[in-house]
């Protein structure tokens, strides 16, 4: 049996269905990400797991115990909120110690554990500061320390990094993953940022319209999207109908399926044995640091991503033949 089991979870708000037939199995110590656009129901799953929102139907078990009807404080579930939800009337130290005080842990033990936790999140010197005296990144680390210190069975992270700027977000992603591995804690992160999901997860559940569109490791999700939605959501995939792709390559495709996806970085200018050739005129290029994205227009429009090197430079307005390996043409359901 899995550490966390969600079976047939449904949720309706009034007449609106927000979750349909959610099934998830999560093992102890896994870092799971729920990835999807705004309003797809991912935060609702977290709130139901935490006991802050009731489900309409379904089974939820954590560590073998049925959670339906169990009060939030009895679930041993921690949560880090997008807006941090730090207690404004308490210092950093008091915020982090709050959960242990509620558990009536001895003062000496509280002090020891809070100091340890503040050291882990690198905030020892800010112990006596109030939340409003800290930066966003520091506040988020306090929120993380406060949730982790009570050693919950699972830690839920509701878009915890989305309010931070890119540089701090990237650093905190690494910190988060390190802390998770250091403590061996099961964590479920909600995000709409596919790069973030790819960077820190063991497994990703991609969600759309209250349903799970696909789940798998970041590599599985990225290299083998099962649907057009997943292909579009996790990258800049080129999606073609069979007819359009066959017209582009000038031959019948030997694989089944009506729609196909090709990763933009799988398209290249150097021919390798067995590659499919597609032609198009370079329309425009977009440089984003180490990567150049070029849009071509031939029988269909397609995007090519190459490393930012001189040999990959293309002249706008010129016709090119690009190549893609057969195994990089992914059939979508």
């Amino acid at each position: 049996m899995s550490y966390i089991t969600i079976e047939g979870l449904h949720k309706k708000f009034g007449e609106t269905t927000v979750l349909t037939e959610i099934d998830m199995r999560i093992e102890k110590g896994e870092f799971i990400t729920l990835l999807g656009p705004s309003g797809c129901g991912k935060s609702t799953i977290l709130r139901i797991l935490a006991g802050l929102t009731d489900s309409s139907a379904g089974v939820i078990q954590i560590d073998g115990k049925n959670m339906i009807g169990v009060e939030p404080k009895e679930r041993q579930v921690g949560m880090v909120f997008q807006s941090y939800a730090l207690f404004p009337n308490m210092t950093v130290y008091e915020n982090v110690a709050f959960g242990l005080r509620m558990q009536k842990v001895a003062s000496a033990e509280i002090d020891k554990r809070v100091q340890e936790m503040l050291a882990i999140v690198n905030l020892t010197e800010k112990a006596n500061f109030y939340p409003k005296e800290l930066s966003g990144g520091q506040q988020q680390r306090v929120a993380l320390a406060r949730a982790v210190i009570v050693r919950p069975k699972v830690l839920l992270l509701d878009e915890p990094l989305s309010a931070l700027d890119a540089q701090i977000r990237k650093k905190l992603q690494v910190d988060l993953r390190n802390i998770q591995q250091q403590l061996g804690m099961t964590m479920i992160l909600v995000t709409h940022d596919q790069e973030e999901a790819m960077a820190i997860s063991d497994r990703i559940f991609v969600m759309n319209n209250g349903m799970i569109a696909q789940n798998g490791t970041p590599t599985e999700i990225y290299t083998s999207p099962k649907s057009e939605f997943v292909a579009n959501f996790i990258g800049h995939y080129n999606v073609f109908t069979r007819q359009a792709l066959e017209k582009m390559v000038g031959t019948t495709l030997p694989v089944k399926g009506e729609k196909f996806a090709i990763r933009p970085e799988a398209i290249h200018l150097e021919q390798k044995q067995g590659d499919i050739a597609i032609t198009g005129v370079a329309q425009h290029s977009l440089m984003s640091g180490n990567v150049i994205r070029t849009t071509f227009e031939g029988e269909s429009v397609f995007l090519m991503e190459q490393l930012h090197q001189r040999k990959h430079n293309v002249a706008i307005g010129q016709k090119y033949t690009c190549y893609v390996a057969k195994e990089d043409v992914v059939a979508l359901s």
């Binding site: 949560m79 959960g99 509620m102 558990q103 009570v150």
Partner: peptide, 23 residues
Amino acid sequence: DARQLLDAAQLLGASKMQAFTKI
């Protein structure tokens, strides 16, 4: 965000009354 503060306090083991009086 009072509602979220209450949620956070309860998830840390506080009763509704404790969340109200302490936070």
